[in-house]
Amino acid sequence: MNIEEQKKELEELIKKLIALGEDADELNFWTEMFDTMDEGARSKLLSNLSKEATDLEKA
């Protein structure tokens, strides 16, 4: 997955998490950081957000 696809996924995850009650300020901070992060950190972040969204939906 290239960085543009990752950014698209990030945006979708953030929208979902905000709708689930997560903090918009914090998540927007990660949007700003995203371009400066390396591939490994970006993947970890997406995985973290994706897991949180899944867990919150199940809760």
Partner: peptide
């Protein structure tokens, strides 16, 4: 409570 705990854990990961 469970949702808050999930959020806390995810933030620790971040």
């Amino acid at each position: 409570e469970r949702k808050q705990a999930i959020m806390e854990q995810a933030r620790d990961g971040r």
